[in-house]
Simulated scan of single mutants.
Amino acid sequence: MKEIAYISGDFVELDKASISLEDRGFQFGDGVYEVIKLYDGILFKGEEHFKRLINSAELIRINLDYSVEDLKEIAFEVIKRSDKNKSGSLYIQVTRGVAPRDHNFSYTLEPTLVMYLLPPKSLPNEIREKGVSVVTLVDNRWGCCNIKTINLLPNILASQEASEKGAFEGIFISDNDIVLEGTGSNIFIVKDGVIITHPVTNKILSGITREIVFELARERFSAVEDPFSLEDLYNADEVFITSTTKEVLGVVEVDGKKIGDGVVGDVTKELNVLYREYKSNPDNF
């Protein structure tokens, strides 16, 4: 099966793809990325992801000389040339480029742009029906979580810690007990019929799925962007997380404490249905 990667102007077979040892992404994690879900070979919210990639690059001062249309064209070519299942995801990474190892960088570097397909990753229906458990963790990340950087070591370690504690996901909590987001997801609570999620600040990455679900929630329920505490999380009627791959996923236990009745709530179930209806409509791509 042929798997194709794009690397800064060239389309190559994935198992033959390589980058320089002096690429700053390899040496410093000096770069940004996006993951875009594919449905039957079509990018879901591709434009929004490409815009966020360009914005992330600008925020860390990478001169990415590609427009949204340029990125779309490359992505479509990668998809067309690959034999891999077209219902996986497209991974995109931009690094500052290749240079002799030095903490300082030059603005004249040519960024490294990589794209390739990831295999399908979906959750069993049983997990969606039963919900998952999460644990809360101290947020020890840097102060610019709104940038989708490839510097994911704190997230990786937190995700591993959550897994070793038998939880599906780890939830970052600030030093003043404000609930922020998951290691790879955004988090919502439902209390007295109101859906609440952390506002868009530098403390969280505003996920594309988060934005869609929040708008769907506003149309059907009462929904607000407001900071909420760890105590609010424990005492919520419902909790759910969202991400590109997790979509809308109910949380039934936090730190060993049952949420509500310990089952996926009605609001979460309805939002899951609304989201699936939304992404099944070609007009919303």
Results as ranks from 00 to 15, higher is better:
Phe28Thr: 05
Phe221Lys: 03
Ala57Asn: 00
Val98Pro: 06
Asn186Phe: 09
Tyr6Arg: 10
Ile212Val: 14
Glu270Lys: 10
Ser222Phe: 09
Lys2Phe: 02
Ser243Gly: 09
Val138Glu: 06
Gly9Leu: 04
Lys148Ala: 03
Arg210His: 08
Glu129Arg: 07
Ala99Ile: 02
Phe50Ser: 01
Ser18Val: 15
Asp177Cys: 02
Gly170Asp: 01
Gly131Asp: 07
Lys130Leu: 07
Glu48Thr: 05
Ile54Ala: 03
Lys246Ile: 01
Ala158Gly: 10
Val267Cys: 02
Leu249Ala: 13
Ala57Phe: 05
Lys257Tyr: 15
Ser185Trp: 12
Val248Arg: 03
Val194His: 12
Leu137Ser: 00
Ile92Leu: 14
Phe168Glu: 11
Lys258Val: 15
Gly262Ser: 10
Ser82Glu: 02
Val200Cys: 15
Gly41Thr: 01
Glu48Asn: 12
Asn235Phe: 11
Thr136Leu: 00
Leu64Glu: 07
Lys191Ile: 12
Leu71Gly: 11
Ile208Leu: 09
Val264Trp: 07
Val12Tyr: 02
Asp23His: 05
Leu230Cys: 03
Leu152Tyr: 09
Ser18Asn: 11
Gly250Arg: 02
Pro100Cys: 09
Phe28Cys: 07
Asp177Ile: 01
Gly31Phe: 09
Ile62Pro: 00
Gly143Arg: 13
Gly41Arg: 04
Glu22Leu: 14
Lys191Tyr: 10
Arg24Ala: 05
Leu233Arg: 07
Glu13His: 04
Ile196Gly: 14
Asp23Ser: 08
Ile178Thr: 06
Lys257Gly: 12
Thr108Val: 09
Leu21Tyr: 12
Val32Phe: 06
Lys45Thr: 03
Asn55Gly: 00
Glu47Ala: 04
Glu126Leu: 02
Ser163Met: 12
Pro227Arg: 15
Ile241Arg: 08
Val138Ala: 02
Ile4Thr: 09
Trp142Val: 00
Ser82Thr: 01
Ser163Thr: 12
Asp177Pro: 00
Asn85Ser: 03
Ser159Leu: 04
Glu238Tyr: 01
Glu164Phe: 08
Asn63His: 05
Lys279Trp: 12
Glu225Val: 01
Gly97Met: 08
Lys37Thr: 08
Glu231Ala: 14
Ser280Asn: 15
Ala99Arg: 05
Thr183Lys: 04
Asp175Gln: 02
Pro119Trp: 00
Asn104Gly: 13
Ala236Ser: 14
Glu253Cys: 10
Tyr234Arg: 05
Glu219His: 08
Lys72Glu: 13
Glu181Met: 01
Ile74Leu: 14
Ile156Asn: 11
Asp65Phe: 06
Leu137Tyr: 07
Gly262Trp: 11
Phe221Thr: 01
Arg276Trp: 15
Ile187Gly: 13
Gly25His: 10
Tyr275Ser: 00
Ala5Pro: 02
Phe214Pro: 13
Leu109Lys: 10
Phe50Thr: 09
Ser133Gln: 04
Asp70Glu: 14
Asp83Met: 01
Tyr107Arg: 09
Glu238Gly: 03
Tyr33Gly: 00
Phe285Val: 13
Asp175Leu: 09
Phe285Cys: 12
Gly166Thr: 11
Thr244His: 05
